[in-house]
Amino acid sequence: MNYRNIFLILGRELKSYFGSLTVYVVIIMFLLMTGYFFYNLLATFSIVSFQAQTDPMLAKQYQMLNINETVIRPLFGSIGIILLLMVPLLTMRLFAEEKKTGTIELLLTFPINDVDVVLGKYLACLVVLLTMILLTATYPILLIALGEPEVVPIATGYLGLVLLGAAAISLGIFTSSLTENQIVSASMTFGILFFFWLISYSVPLVSAGLGQFLSYLSINDHIESMSKGVVDTEDIIYYLCFIALFLFLTLRSLETKRWR
C-alpha cells in the first residue's frame, strides 16, 4: 500500500466524478426522493400532533408521539433504501468504463499496486456518497431548529447510513471489475443488494437457526438499531466484513484479468 498512489487515484477519480454531469443528476435525484419522504413524514407528524391537541382519544393512542420515532427513524429507513438504489449508478463506471475505453491497460502497467488502485477508486466513490449523505443533513437540522429531537439517534443513524452505503459501494466496485459494460455492473449490483435487502423476507419460511442466519445477512436490518441510537459492535463488524470481502474479491478479479 502506498498512500501517495492511493491519493493520486482518489484525486483523479474525484475529478472525473465531479467533472461529469452524472454525479450531479444522481445527487439531485437522491435529494428529491429523500426530500419527498421527509416532507410527507413531517407533514403527517404535524397533522397528527395538531389533531391530538384537541382529541384526547387520539392523544392517548399516540402517547408515544415522538419526532424521533415517527419522523427520523422512518426517514433513515427510506434514505437507506434510496441509497441502495443510487449506489449502483455511482459505482458502475469505476472499472467498467476503464475497460471499455482501454485505459485499464495503462492503469495496470503503471508502477502501482492493484490494492492502491482499488482503494483509491473505493475512497473516491465513498467521498461522493458522503457528500450525498451530508446534504440530507438539512432535514435533521430543520427538525432541530423547529423541535426538540434527540440528537444521539440522529448521529448514530447517520453512522448506519454511511456504513450501509460504504458496503454497497464495495459490492458495486466488485461487479464493475467483472465487466466492461456499465449497465451489466449496475444491474448486478442492484440485484445483489436487493437480495441482501429482502433476504429477511424468507426468515419465516425456514428453520429458526437458518432464519437467524438469514436475518443476520440482511444489509439493512443492521441499521435498524443504529437509527434508534444503539450502536452494536456486531452491526459494525457486519458492514466491515462485507466491505473487506468485496474489496478482496475486486482485487482477485483484477488479478484474474491479468491471467486471461
Partner: peptide, 10 residues
C-alpha cells in the same frame, strides 16, 4: 498502447 487509451475527461 495501440488504442492510445487516455482519460478523455482530463
Amino acid at each position: 498502447p495501440e488504442r492510445v487509451p487516455l482519460y478523455e475527461d482530463m
